[in-house]
Design a protein around this nucleic acid. Structure first.
Lengths: 124, 124
DNA sequence: CAGCATCCATTGAGATACTG
DNA sequence: CAGTATCTCAATGGATGCTG
């Protein structure tokens, strides 16, 4: 919910910074795009191959949103055939830091989570 | 997508730990619940008030999943009226660490993101 | 109080086809 | 090559009412 229960006329753009950020990187692809660009500039099709199972539809949408948020830059080279390169901005790179901490945690604890899930399932 | 494009018979439960974790905390409420429990044990209705705009439906679902994953513990006191207390497990508390780094980043950079978004919108 | 069942609205995401 | 447009389906999430 963007709005509280009552209809107080909020003047802030976004009620909660963290929700806003998590909504973005929490979607299916933003995170993968961000980490995919970690190594440097990439073209649309390169990103597509790197991620593997993303449709151009979703990759396109995701990149556009990341660009809007200023996390990713987009450079079009007016050639034929067209070439478009994506890269992390300074802001995007800075987000990678806390993201890496999360990745590390996920790697370290995923097994435990899967086992916990299974235990619950088996009990049911 | 849980599966790659080809139909290689994967035997792993979950192909990608990070996606799996982000799917969880990336949903609308898990993150709020986790941080809500940061201060210690809380009852269902307390959590509800603390978060503010979550329905009991969603709070219930969220807690159940977090419990399944072993991030939150649930203790039922057989009283009338019933009392149920939720708390972070050791695992849950450990997740809070990298999460806090993300929160910090969000706080620090949210303004920049909002401004970037607006700039793009205004240009259009 | 806690929380499940049901129903409904919104959004996410895939497939496909078309364009500069 | 790098997208956009359209359509469709599945998953998320909200509202409400009922129960132990």
């Amino acid at each position: 919910m963007e709005r509280p229960l009552d209809d107080t006329p909020f003047t802030f753009e976004e009620p909660c910074p963290i929700r806003d950020v998590l909504d973005r990187i929490g979607d299916q692809w933003s995170f993968l795009v961000l980490t995919g660009l970690e190594g440097g500039t990439m073209r649309f099709s390169e990103l597509m191959r790197a991620i593997g199972d993303v449709s151009k539809q979703m990759l396109s949408r995701t990149l556009r949103r990341l660009e809007e948020d200023g996390l990713v830059s987009r450079t079009v080279y007016p050639e034929v055939p067209p070439r478009v390169e994506y890269a992390l901005t300074e802001l995007g790179r800075s987000l990678l830091e806390p993201l890496r901490a999360l990745i590390r945690w996920a790697d370290d604890n995923h097994r435990t989570i899967v086992l916990s899930r299974r235990r619950v399932r088996d009990a049911a």
